[in-house]
Simulated scan of single mutants.
Amino acid sequence: MHFIGQPKQLTISIYQLIDGEYQVKQFRGEDTIHQSIVFPELSLTAKQIF
C-alpha cells in the first residue's frame, strides 16, 4: 500500500512482468481492478480493498 499524489491517496500498485520488464498499473478510489489471470471474473474497486 502506498500513498501517492497530491493530496496523498491510498494507491494499489499491480506489477506485471512483460518481456522481461515489470510494468506497473496504479489504482485509487473507485478505479476498477480487473487484472487477475487466475480470477478473470474478479472485479473490485481500490476502495473496496481498503
Rank of each mutant, 00 (worst) to 15 (best):
M1R: 14
M1K: 14
H2I: 13
F3H: 13
F3T: 06
F3R: 10
I4P: 04
G5F: 06
G5S: 12
Q6Y: 11
Q6F: 09
Q6M: 10
P7A: 02
P7F: 03
K8G: 14
L10I: 11
L10M: 09
T11A: 10
I12H: 12
I12T: 14
S13M: 11
S13E: 14
I14F: 04
I14P: 03
I14D: 05
Y15H: 13
Q16T: 15
L17D: 10
I18P: 01
I18G: 01
D19L: 04
G20W: 05
G20D: 07
G20M: 06
G20H: 05
E21Q: 11
E21T: 11
E21H: 08
E21W: 04
Y22M: 11
Y22I: 11
Y22S: 09
Q23Y: 06
Q23N: 10
K25S: 09
K25N: 09
K25A: 05
K25W: 05
Q26I: 07
Q26W: 00
Q26G: 06
Q26D: 14
F27D: 11
F27R: 09
F27C: 12
G29M: 12
G29C: 09
G29D: 15
E30K: 12
D31Q: 02
D31F: 01
T32P: 00
T32W: 01
I33M: 07
I33T: 10
I33F: 04
H34M: 03
H34G: 05
H34C: 04
H34P: 01
Q35L: 06
Q35W: 00
S36Q: 05
S36C: 13
I37C: 00
I37H: 01
I37V: 03
I37W: 00
I37M: 01
V38K: 02
V38F: 00
F39Q: 12
F39S: 10
P40H: 05
P40G: 07
P40K: 06
E41G: 07
L42W: 08
L42C: 08
L44W: 04
T45W: 00
T45N: 01
T45C: 01
A46W: 02
K47H: 05
K47D: 07
Q48N: 06
Q48R: 05
I49Y: 00
F50G: 01
F50D: 04
